[in-house]
Nucleic acid binder design. Structure first.
Lengths: 145, 145
DNA sequence: GCATTTACATCGATTATTGATACGGTTCCG
DNA sequence: CGGAACCGTATCAATAATCGATGTAAATGC
């Protein structure tokens, strides 16, 4: 077997699918930077500001001010890093996790409606592609290092 | 067959894969809004400002000023709509298409490197999932209407 | 210990975004 | 036709987001 993957087409279809997947109707409260920070903290647990900076497309002063705002809004908390007196550990509060979870739920609902309209054969392919997407994500994470 | 798709896990893995796929090293010049506008115009041909507004997460005055800036930078052009004297048709210039294309190429390269590290079986699944992703995108586009 | 590096915060300036509103072209309906 | 209502876009003033430069304090290295 081992058919060649048409990476060109794959890239194109992901580019087209992404806007649909990302955009949610209810999003008036948070801009892109804010959502990205919340998502990163939700996935990667407590992080120092500098580590968070690596994944966010912001400069350090902008991230500091965003974090200050989110702390005020009760979505995340700053705690001193016991290992390093200079650093702060950032983590989501219950309210912060709730924001991320509710957006995730909206996506699940949206995607479910789309999946319902696939044929059984298409659903089979989609089910088996979950593992492959997971592998791609893992490989990409390794490459970062 | 017709295995149930685990939409919960599928959503999660797409959420995790997306930041990897979206973020490119070279992106210092353009912010998120700008890239989204360029991408939308590249895909959906000439559009009126109001139609573009529907897909972008911006209010109309912000989009007008962004479009003005992009016109100044030579990335898109405004032309009067022959069908409606009030409207302007927006389309990418050669330079604008070049920006979109070069980002696309970067993604193809990045994704190729990841795909290279999959097993032959995983690549088979990925190849067949292209069609399903296309279908999902088509279904989502229909639902918009 | 003293110099250097690292982590984060602060400051002022610039840019992006928004809500309210104005303006002109278009459509509707008598 | 001619005025009223509507639609697409632009402008304006105010607010928010972001950046570069720089400061402060803790940690590291010789």
């Amino acid at each position: 077997m081992a058919a060649e993957v048409d990476v060109e087409r794959l890239t194109t279809v992901i580019e087209d699918f992404n806007p649909i997947f990302i955009r949610l109707p209810s999003v008036r409260r948070f801009n892109f930077s804010t959502l990205s920070v919340l998502h990163t903290l939700a996935r990667n647990g407590p992080l120092r500001l500098t580590d968070l900076l690596a994944t966010e497309q912001l400069k350090q002063p902008a991230l500091t001010s965003l974090v200050t705002k989110l702390e005020h809004d009760g979505l995340l908390q700053r705690r001193p890093d016991p290992k390093d007196g200079r650093a702060m550990l950032l983590s989501l509060t219950r309210a912060g996790r709730q924001v991320v979870r509710s957006r995730h739920t909206e996506r699940v609902n949206k995607l479910s409606r789309l999946v319902d309209r696939l044929t059984p054969e298409e659903r089979d392919v989609l089910a088996s592609s979950i593992h492959v997407l997971t592998r791609l994500t893992e490989i990409a994470a390794e490459e970062q290092l």
